[in-house]
Design a protein around this nucleic acid. Structure first.
Lengths: 362, 362
DNA sequence: GAGCCTTGCAGAAACGTACCTGTCAACGCC
DNA sequence: GGCGTTGACAGGTACGTTTCTGCAAGGCTC
């Protein structure tokens, strides 16, 4: 052993390698690998002996070497498309945060970890990490990141149905159209005569589908659409737009806010105009935040169930990575939940003269 | 080339490797590596030729192989200590979310990516990913994760000063004592006679330091401490505790809420008891949420500046990874910011008979 | 006892990169 | 013309695993 030093000692790199364990246990490298990974045909005595020696040496297998050899890293990319300057907005809305949390938990349960990556397609950052697959939240129309990843043969699962011909492996989404229609019906049932919409001017699928559903509903019931949109990346613009909406001559008597902070903004705007909620103004907001349970009054919210979505996305992705035939379809629709609170309920209906959906001029 | 097939063609693994680029460009592997990494002594002609061929083949270097060879993965772990069952709570409070976002951005700017990992010390998940270092949010007293990582020789930087003898490489924190004292003074200046505290019963350093500062302040001004604590992992417990606090016989005329959702809970509780804010009850809450700007009334908040903390933590960690001598100290204190809103201001002070800090029995 | 299967393990070839150590030509210089 | 120098590249090894293949010994059947 003192000859050509063909067996490197652990003194070299500091950390003990599989060779050191093999030498210390008096077995071959193969045996160590098999013993620790539960493979091969080894008697329990050898297996436990090797494990004990490995434990004693504090052996930790090199993730890089394993990844290189097996081609699997156990890492999943997580990306959310952004619109502003900041590379990451995944904390902007509780929706993203909750979804990311659920995804992380689900991945962990199956032995994977999540890597947060920017939505830009800069090779230098994306190719610097060995990914087994990627979760993309709200991919844009011709998402460069998705295209690149798919070209590399990596599975990509998106939160939000892909627009156009985006070649994702699978996707999960809500039925936004049904959610909006149901919610508008709910407001109409509560006595709303003219329902307004507050929305960001982003071009993502969620916004488009929801807005379309609103317009469609308006046409069906014969109401003129009354909505305000604002640049979603500007944190102050929402409050301004809420003000604008309530200042209109054709002021709505009910409003649906498409984005998370719209609820508090609308509440504040209503106070400024002396409008009582829900007596003068019915309110519903799409949000995952719990603050709406404690506002004055509590605000009805539409939950998109980000936890279920995050979990589903990761399950589909890992199934694709591991080649498991998904038992369900690769397109999964998660139901939404309308959490009805005071802001959308009128105890004594103000008017019962006509069914709420009938067009009645003013 | 048809002999022993010693040059594997790219048809093998699907993706083009550095060998394929070398063959296509008619140069050696070394030359390709040098050309792409900007090393070696190569004429610009060769360099650009190699780059062009690599681009044409869609060559992406294998992150796993590079990591194995260089020992650097460009990955940074991110962990937040949790108390409940869920493995991840990083989205629970806007603080964590904002901090994580800032950390991710800062890491990206220096060519690193963040991996979200659980605070459990299960080897199988931690050793499955090659990390260059780790950010730990709120490490516990004898944090097993930190100990293990340091034992492996990895740099660890914590958000929150380490308790006991925890061997972190560096840490970043606020001066919680100064923040609480300043805020209590602010409330006293606004006319508070008896300031209460609402807090979770967690054992982390933030809670302990803040509570200690509160008790210390009480002693200094001669006020009996009046506080309620509740299990922080229970999402409903906060509202109950807020109710309890305002139902006490020695009801405070000002309250500081240590955790993020306390503000809305206290506001709701005050409404239930018919207390006007700020006339009957002054309110301050430690929070990063923007909803407090639009509540009725707007609530004064203490911001811990999570963005600055997240950025600082990552800078310190990457400095340690790259062996840069940090120009600043390895212990960095970030100032807090008190965002004063209506809830802690009394326009016409109700009483001016005695200086606010004087002990006055009842 | 020859063939065959099973058990228990060892050898060695990859995985794809980075980098150290040459080699070879050209060049200037005395 | 010998010699150091420099530019421009090629060869080969190592990073630490996993896993395919091989091989010897023992037990079984006929």
């Amino acid at each position: 052993m003192s000859r050509t030093e063909t067996h490197r000692r652990s003194t070299r790199s500091g950390r003990a390698g599989i060779r050191d364990v093999a030498a210390a246990a008096g077995v071959s490298i193969t045996t160590v690998s098999d013993a620790l990974n539960g493979k091969g045909r080894l008697p329990d005595a050898t297996r436990s002996h090797v494990r004990e020696v490995a434990e004693r040496l504090g052996y930790r297998p090199s993730a890089a070497a394993r990844t290189l050899r097996t081609g699997k890293s156990g890492l999943i990319g997580l990306t959310v498309t952004t619109y502003g300057d900041e590379p990451f907005t995944f904390t902007e809305f509780p929706y993203f945060a909750e979804m990311a949390r659920a995804a992380t938990s689900a991945a962990l349960a199956r032995g994977y970890a999540l890597v947060i990556l920017p939505a830009t397609s800069r090779h230098d950052v994306w190719s610097n990490v060995a990914l087994d697959g990627t979760v993309v939240i709200d991919p844009s129309d011709q998402d460069a990141v998705v295209t690149e990843l798919v070209r590399q043969g990596l599975p990509v699962v998106s939160d939000g149905r892909p627009a156009g011909t985006l070649p994702v492996t699978a996707w999960v989404d809500n039925d936004h159209e049904a959610a909006v229609l149901g919610l508008l019906d709910h407001l109409a049932d509560a006595g709303a005569r003219r329902i307004g919409l507050l929305t960001g001017n982003t071009t993502d699928t969620y916004t488009r589908l929801s807005t379309d559903a609103y317009l469609c509903w308006c046409e069906r019931v014969g109401q003129d659409p009354v909505y305000e949109s604002y640049p979603a990346h500007d944190p102050c613009a929402g409050a301004v737009a809420a003000d604008r909406l309530l200042a209109r001559p054709d002021r709505p008597d009910a409003v649906y806010g498409l984005f998370d902070p719209n609820g508090t903004d609308l509440l504040a705007a209503a106070r400024r105009y002396g409008l009582r909620v829900p007596e003068d103004l019915l309110l519903v907001c799409c949000s995952e935040s719990t603050v709406y349970a404690a506002t004055e009054p509590p605000v009805t919210t539409l939950s998109l169930k980000p936890r279920r979505i995050g979990t589903a996305v990761v399950q589909l992705l890992i199934d694709a990575i591991e080649g498991v035939n998904p038992d369900g379809p690769v397109e999964q629709v998660i139901p939404t939940e309308l959490i009805v609170r005071t802001s959308s309920q009128r105890r004594p209906p103000r008017t019962k003269v006509s069914p709420p959906r009938s067009p009645s001029g003013d």
